[in-house]
Design a binder for these strands. Structure first.
Lengths: 127, 127
DNA sequence: CAGCTTTCTTGAAGTTGTCAACCATTTACA
DNA sequence: TGTAAATGGTTGACAACTTCAAGAAAGCTG
């Protein structure tokens, strides 16, 4: 189990570096929705880290033109995050790459894969 | 699956901080064996990071008196890492804590847990 | 309007990570 | 044997993540 986590983490970092992104940047891109701008604080909550941390991560994503900050109309304190066109394209390729089943799991039989999926679902439902 | 990884990572970091250790420090302690000193380079390989990185991690573990560096007799370039008495005690408590099944998995039925374990084993054997 | 709260930013400090350069030691070979 | 190359670890520079404390700007409340 421990081993599997380690392998998965390696895989995740390898994919992130394919896109020249850091793991938190990938998490941020995954969470943001091109159709629906979200405030920084929500991203911080999703990433389970401090607001001030998100500032830096978004700074670097914005430098690369992947996301944009925009003051909310209703409350000008909150900055809404939107994904740019380039960002959406990267996000899609990233999602496709991450959805490929990891090597150890791909080598399992179809029945095992199904069983695994069902057990995982039950585990997360109970959580 | 993604979600499960995220949850597991959170759990791991929470346990690490219970012991006032960082994740890499925990990984290092887990890898070292109180009975058998190992060279820095082997730890670097296990942690999949640069030698120079291990230098810093071991520095901080040594500052807390958890591990010790000792020049190998055969080749004085290599530093053998040993776990101190305090280190072994921490390592044991840590192992016990990490072996407790994580909450989402613990809530599964016994059959599901067994099935999960068997599938995991098959996955890692094939890898 | 005055004071409190909320959202985000900034700055300091610490850890991780990589890379290049370096030192000491060992090994290879001419 | 003696010099050159390889090896193990350290150091320094740099970038990113992380948290905390302090601050600025905007909004809310009485």
């Amino acid at each position: 189990m421990f081993e599997l986590l380690h392998v998965s983490k390696q895989r995740f970092m390898a994919i992130a570096s394919e896109f020249d992104l850091s793991p938190p940047q990938v998490m941020a891109l995954r969470h943001l929705d091109p159709a629906e701008p979200k405030p920084m604080s929500e991203l911080a909550q999703a990433l389970r880290c401090d607001n001030s941390n998100v500032t830096g991560i978004v700074d670097r994503l914005e430098d690369r033109g992947l996301v944009e900050r925009r003051a909310a109309e209703r409350d000008r304190r909150v900055k809404m995050l939107t994904i740019t066109e380039r960002g959406a394209e990267v996000r899609d390729r990233l999602a496709a790459r991450l959805e490929e089943p990891p090597a150890p799991l791909a080598s399992l039989s179809i029945e095992d894969q199904r069983a695994l999926r069902d057990i995982m679902r039950r585990a997360l439902d109970r959580a």
